[in-house]
């Protein structure tokens, strides 16, 4: 389901391109194998991993609105190509005004063990699937890069984490408080788009399933209880979408208001989990099998929800921002 707001022809084409890559991911993936190297290749060939690279003036090549389209569509398939990590790492480098620290490679970000923010030491690399080999982090105000050991898996089956192996190397760029706020705002919107895609897609397939699965002599989708479950989940998906679109527009329009980004992530972190839980309820027993993809969506949104602050933490943070007790930095 696409946004009901008008998208430009360019955006429609972009969405179609990404949806094709996501569809191939979905249809070729065996349950046991989580190999997304061909997805990654397709994303690279389409230039989608470079969306937040800097142009000659240091401005990003694509808008946050476009990034949201790409991330949402790939998340619908719960694809494990390290797109989000790479987008975040690229944005980080652009904001720190440094060139690609590891040219032509997948990258990701180094976060503290609680995933609350960028880190350098005692850190782990999130979204570190093949072919990620390095991650970018922050030591004080200094951007650093570290090589990674092999990924160790995670409960988000298609997005392993990895432990840094080499020492942290300074790469020459720094991030002041404003730039760090800008990075976090961008990251919140990207994560909210990931939550939207992963939850929206599984709800749609649950609704389809409810139209086919027969119990008590009729499709379960005719029962008011099932209809209302789906209807409530749909409201939560639409609200997520509104928050993501608005936050993306806020960042793109350059007003520097980080509040909508915090709102989108805070809302998405709880709403997306609830949406997937409702979809699982509609699927019933099949959703509790490994083979069926619902649990992949569930695992994805559970982990996304924690990255850079869960709904609870960000809600409290938002209160401080609104009360003027904080400058938007966490």
């Amino acid at each position: 389901m696409t946004a009901t707001l008008h998208e430009s022809e360019e955006d429609v084409a972009l969405r179609r391109t990404v949806a094709d890559i996501a569809e191939r991911c979905r249809s070729t993936r065996a349950a046991e194998v989580d190999d997304h190297t061909s997805c990654w290749g397709a994303l690279v060939r389409s230039g989608l991993t470079e969306l937040r690279g800097a142009d000659d003036d240091g401005a990003p090549l694509a808008t946050v609105g476009q990034v949201v389209i790409v991330v949402e569509e790939m998340a619908r398939a719960v694809c494990g190509a390290p797109l989000v990590g790479t987008l975040l790492a690229t944005e980080l480098q652009r904001l720190a005004d440094v060139d690609h620290v590891v040219p032509d490679e997948a990258l990701t970000v180094l976060l503290d063990q609680e995933l609350r923010g960028l880190a350098a030491d005692d850190a782990l690399a999130w979204d570190a699937g093949v072919p990620v080999t390095h991650a970018v982090g922050l030591d004080g105000e200094n951007l650093v890069v570290r090589a990674l050991e092999g990924a160790t898996g995670s409960q988000d089956l298609s997005r392993p984490v990895a432990v840094p192996a080499g020492d942290a190397e300074l790469v020459g760029g720094t991030l002041d408080a404003d730039a760090r706020t800008a990075f976090e705002a961008f990251a919140h919107v990207v994560l909210a788009a990931d939550l939207l895609g992963a939850s929206g897609a599984v709800l749609e397939s649950a609704i389809e399933y409810a139209g086919q699965r027969v119990q008590f002599g009729q499709p379960i989708g005719t029962f008011q209880a099932v209809q209302h479950l789906c209807a409530r989940a749909h409201v939560q998906v639409e609200a997520q979408r509104s928050a993501v679109l608005f936050a993306a527009w806020s960042l793109d329009s350059g007003q520097g208001d980080v509040v909508p980004a915090i709102v989108a992530k805070a809302y998405g972190a709880s709403a997306a989990v609830e949406v997937v839980e409702k979809a699982v309820q509609v699927f019933g027993g099949v959703a509790i099998t490994w083979e069926f993809p619902a649990h992949r969506h569930l695992r994805r949104v559970l982990l996304d929800a924690e990255v850079l602050g869960n709904g609870s933490a960000l809600s409290g943070h938002l209160f401080d921002v609104v009360e003027g007790r904080s400058d938007g930095l966490q």
């Binding site: 160790t152 309820q281 027993g285 509790i288």
Partner: peptide, 26 residues
């Protein structure tokens, strides 16, 4: 917190959580 999600295969608390979702089904 995320530590129960960033571990590799076999997170007992996640398993219990997933199994709890089945409680409203079986």
């Amino acid at each position: 917190g995320p530590s129960v999600l960033t571990t590799g295969p076999g997170s007992r608390w996640l398993e219990k959580y997933i199994y709890s979702r089945a409680a409203s089904i079986y």
